[in-house]
Design a protein around this nucleic acid. Structure first.
Length: 123
DNA sequence: ATCCTGACCCAAG
DNA sequence: GCTTGGGCCAGGA
């Protein structure tokens, strides 16, 4: 069994970790803050995580994260559009509707469902 | 280092 | 509404 890291060791480990790992961790943490019935856009997640120009990495994180580790269905494209294709897109829509998220045509009603992160001004 | 690709975004037309 | 072109960034070959 591996011994638990001391606080100092943990800090060193983080300092040594590549920036991409910190960034991805921040993105995952941000996504997990979105509650049931609420949604956020890729760009919004990136900005709230502290990386305003990394919306594409949000998608990358969602793609590469193990299934069940994130509420992936709550992340949408700009304007509340589902960006997944085919079955995946249908599943996303179904999951969201199960959470009480309403759609207007192909788009989620963002005025009603967009999540406000702490420190997220605008709107 | 270069080239390609992606669950992106946005302003134009 | 839709398509297009340009911009953005990181990962993999």
């Amino acid at each position: 069994m591996r011994r638990k890291l001391t606080a100092r060791e943990a800090a060193r480990k983080i300092a040594r970790a590549p920036k991409s790992a910190q960034r991805d961790a921040a993105i995952r943490k941000t996504i997990r803050q979105i509650p049931r019935g609420k949604v956020a856009t890729y760009a919004q997640v990136a900005a709230a995580a502290g990386y305003p120009l990394h919306h594409r990495q949000v998608a990358q994180v969602l793609r590469t994260s193990p299934a069940g580790s994130l509420p992936w269905q709550r992340v949408l494209g700009a304007g509340g559009q589902i960006k997944l294709q085919y079955e995946a897109g249908l599943e996303q829509r179904t999951r969201l509707e199960m959470e009480g998220v309403r759609f207007r045509g192909k788009r989620v009603d963002m005025a009603e469902h967009q999540f406000r992160f702490r420190g997220w001004e605008e709107g």
